[in-house]
Simulated assay, not measured.
Amino acid sequence: MVENVIHELTAEEAELYDRQIRLWGLENQKKLRNSKILIAGLNGLGAEIAKNIILAGLKSVTFLDSAKVSKLDFASQFFIPTTEEGKNRAEACLLRAQALNPMVELTADTGDLKDKDEEFFKKFNVVVITEASIAEQTRIDNICREHNIKFFAADMWGMFGFSFADLQEHEFAEDIIKHKVISKPHEKVKTEPVTHTTKRSLKFPSLESTLSFDFKSQYFTKRMKKTGPAYIVMKILQKFREDENRDPLPAHRDEDIKKLLAIRDSMSDANLIPDIYFEHVFGQISPSSAILGGSVAQEVIKTVSQKDAPHYNYFFFDPQTACGFIERIDTAY
């Protein structure tokens, strides 16, 4: 992991980030300003994540993507002009992304994620992966665990998406609000809020262990009646990517839905996951990407600043309910 050396903010930076400093404090802004982030996969979701963390004032952000810009990108990738079709996605993002905050160092890497070795990832404080295979996500998470690098994986299929966090041993400060009685005896009770900052820590399981979780267990089946089948839907879409070496495409809609339903039937009880879950998993829908991307970026900011409790450890956005929710997948269950 990169050395955790805290440099002071310049007068120009203090002025630019004045509002944020008032929100989460000078020391937390210094932590942000000294952090190096990798975002791999500059689709619409990756762009939303990048936008929010660039505005927050990180030291540097590296865009890693070997893909070429396609027409599908224009549905949700707001960094890339339509004139850039066919060019590298990471490079095509730089100009508009840099305009958001000239003080953040932005770099484009056109290499392939699978070719990046352990030394490459050691340069970053936080690694965010999108569009990767499960094998690649697991490989990179294991590298991050070895070097205490915070790891996030996220994906968006149409209007369905998820994020996963592996923060290993993570310490943070959380504000606890209590109410103090200020009224005198025999008077109507009056209280005022008093904030106490408490230090806490959490230990996160690896991505690999959560993916081997027994979702057919009686415990999970009961819990799924409350939260829905989002975890299994994610697994089905990941299996499709693994089998087809791509995500579902609008041009292959009918064919791909049949394949998704076949995977569903092989993995779980068809009655648990209605067919409608696979009607809207094509491309990336901008509003849904904004919700998930904003959530991931906020978690990155919370992680770097060590302020407030992080999501433990999955976050799902379910288009059937138009709601996002946290799902705890832990090998202890």
Rank of each mutant, 00 (worst) to 15 (best):
N4H: 12
N4M: 10
E13I: 06
D18I: 05
R19C: 07
R22V: 11
G25P: 07
L26H: 14
G44E: 05
L45V: 09
E48M: 06
A50I: 04
N52S: 12
A56L: 09
K59D: 15
K59P: 01
V61A: 06
V69D: 00
L72H: 10
L72R: 10
A75M: 10
F78G: 02
I80A: 04
A90N: 03
R96E: 14
A97K: 00
A99T: 12
V104W: 01
D109G: 06
G111L: 10
E119Q: 14
K122D: 05
V128F: 07
A135G: 07
M159S: 14
F162D: 09
F164P: 04
A173N: 10
D175L: 09
I177P: 03
K188M: 13
K190T: 14
P193R: 05
V194Q: 13
H196K: 15
F204G: 03
E208R: 12
F215V: 07
K226G: 04
I232V: 15
N245H: 13
P250C: 05
R253G: 07
D256V: 08
D256N: 07
I257A: 10
I257F: 05
A262T: 14
I276H: 13
Y277T: 07
Q284D: 08
I285Q: 06
I291Q: 08
L292E: 06
G293W: 00
S295P: 00
E299M: 08
Y312W: 13
Y312N: 12
F315Q: 06
F316R: 03
D318H: 08
I326N: 10
